[in-house]
């Protein structure tokens, strides 16, 4: 409208008024961000500098005498086996529990169940370890025997069956229970936030409750479930005490889940070996810790990537 008139002086660019509250908040937020980065960098620098001697040491000096790769390799395998097994068991269970609590259970039962599951997270991992050793392992022995008899064509169940049950399989199941609360709590949260608008759209089209969940709840909650699963995976990868107590480890690289000889995991191996380690042995353990750090980093980056891949369709817009 002003186009026909003589050009008017452009208004002075409004100078943002910076109120003290804003400034303090922005400053402290920025400070916290920087602080976290510094801590992370510090941990990484420590790990790298302490691991370096193990990387350069001659292979005879590394515990086991065959070099760093053959020392850490089986530990990586053990770490991944236990954590992935836990994830595969826990995720569907957690999603089922979360859906039951949010969309099926009567309100009272839902509240109680949610509370009980959250309580699982409050149990210290030492307790899980002893429970796994004293209760879960013996209970699972018959399954180990059965699996060795019937499923031995699958490398994971090659056998021979452990008679104590202190196997990677038992560890995986105990870890699954330990990470269940994290995954189910986050899934529950995102499922309950699935917009009523879209749930009603599905119901109004004649969807049953389960179809409504498939159309409007699961797609909406997917990235949250993935995020929860990755948090759970992170916990399972790093879990130390429970694994150290339950697993009869120390054997080389094998994917056999049910025998007495299992690869140990990085975290439990560090805990068990650290007290007696000296010299390059310490550096080797720290190098394995660095590998665990990298694995966790990659897992988190993968999770981000999965979550962002279909951001267009995520419903966030």
């Amino acid at each position: 409208m002003t186009a026909t008139k003589a050009p008017i002086e452009p208004p002075p660019t409004p100078r943002a008024v910076r109120r003290p509250g804003d400034r303090i908040f922005a400053g402290s937020a920025k400070g916290s961000g920087i602080f976290i980065l510094l801590v992370l960098a510090g941990v990484a620098a420590f790990l790298i500098s302490e691991a370096l001697p193990a990387l350069t040491a001659p292979s005879e000096d590394i515990p086991g005498g065959e070099g760093l790769a053959s020392y850490i390799g089986p530990l990586v395998l053990g770490t991944l086996l236990g954590a992935v097994l836990a994830l595969l068991v826990a995720t569907p269970l957690a999603v089922g529990i979360a859906l039951y609590i949010t969309y099926y259970a009567p309100r009272r039962i839902a509240a109680v169940l949610g509370y009980v599951i959250d309580l699982l997270a409050a149990i210290p991992s030492v307790v899980y370890g002893f429970w796994g050793l004293a209760v879960v392992a013996p209970t699972l022995v018959p399954f180990h025997v059965w699996a060795a008899d019937h499923l031995s064509w699958i490398p994971f169940f090659a056998g021979p069956a452990s008679t104590s049950g202190r196997t990677m399989f038992t560890v995986g199941l105990v870890l699954a229970i330990m990470i269940l609360p994290i995954i189910s709590a986050i899934s529950r949260e995102v499922f309950s936030q699935a917009p009523a608008l879209h749930r009603e759209a599905a119901l109004a089209l004649g969807a049953t409750r389960w179809e409504m969940i498939q159309m409007a709840v699961l797609p909406y909650g997917k990235s949250g479930v993935i995020a929860g699963a990755m948090l759970g995976l992170g916990r399972a990868l790093g879990e130390t005490m429970a694994v150290a107590i339950i697993l009869s480890g120390g054997a080389g690289a094998t994917v056999n889940l049910i025998s007495n000889s299992n690869p140990s995991t990085i975290a439990s191996n560090i805990a068990l070996s650290f007290p007696e380690a000296t010299g390059v042995g310490v550096n080797t353990l720290i190098a394995s810790g660095l590998v665990l750090f990298l694995i966790t980093l990659v897992v988190n980056m993968l999770a981000r990537w999965v979550v962002n891949r279909r951001a267009d369709f995520s419903g966030a817009n």
Partner: peptide, 22 residues
Amino acid sequence: PVNVRRQIGMVFQRPNPFPTMS
């Protein structure tokens, strides 16, 4: 009620296409 809703369609006040679908 599921069958009733298949016979009687509904359009809501706020447009609600499924955001996760094309």
